[in-house]
């Protein structure tokens, strides 16, 4: 192994086998992947090592509502930005009413990804129907 090479252990999440993958990385090159039982493991190793990303979900307190608003990044964002993204969500300002799918933060942290509402506030499903005999 050359000096620049780095060995990383991962768990593949694509199926319940949860293979332990040993990945050797040199800069932005993957040198080798071992421990997978199928091709998906190799793809996962590349993705997780070079560009790990996650959908971030969180909550925002909204004045005028006793319930918080749940939100998510519309697409996965780089994993190292999770903390900053949570902070940006905390700092955002929301006015009622909100409809599911509304954009709450456009292009969060210049990732090109929007943060959107994952519920409506006030809730539109507290309806009751009286069924007549």
């Amino acid at each position: 192994m050359s000096n620049a090479e780095q060995s990383i252990t991962l768990t593949c999440v694509n199926c319940p086998a949860g293979c332990r993958l040993n990945v050797v990385r040199d800069g932005d090159q993957i040198v080798s992947v071992a421990g997978y039982r199928c091709r998906q493991g190799i793809e996962y190793a590349h993705q997780e090592v070079m560009n790990p990303s996650r959908i971030v979900t969180s909550l925002i307190r909204v004045s005028g509502s006793s319930e918080p608003l749940s939100v998510k990044t519309k697409q996965p964002i780089p994993r190292h930005l999770i903390g900053d993204c949570l902070a940006a969500i905390q700092a955002s300002f929301v006015t009622l009413p909100v409809t599911i799918g509304d954009v709450i933060i456009e292009n969060v942290l210049n990732t090109g990804v929007d943060v959107i509402a994952t519920r409506s506030l006030p809730d539109r499903t507290c309806r009751s129907a009286k069924v007549k005999a």
């Binding site: 991962l10 768990t11 593949c12 999440v13 199926c15 319940p16 086998a17 949860g18 996650r54 994993r79 999770i82």
Partner: peptide, 12 residues
């Protein structure tokens, strides 16, 4: 739990 949750909720 699912491996996905072990990785993304604990290991992360």
């Amino acid at each position: 739990g699912l491996p996905r949750n072990v990785v993304q909720c604990l290991q992360d």
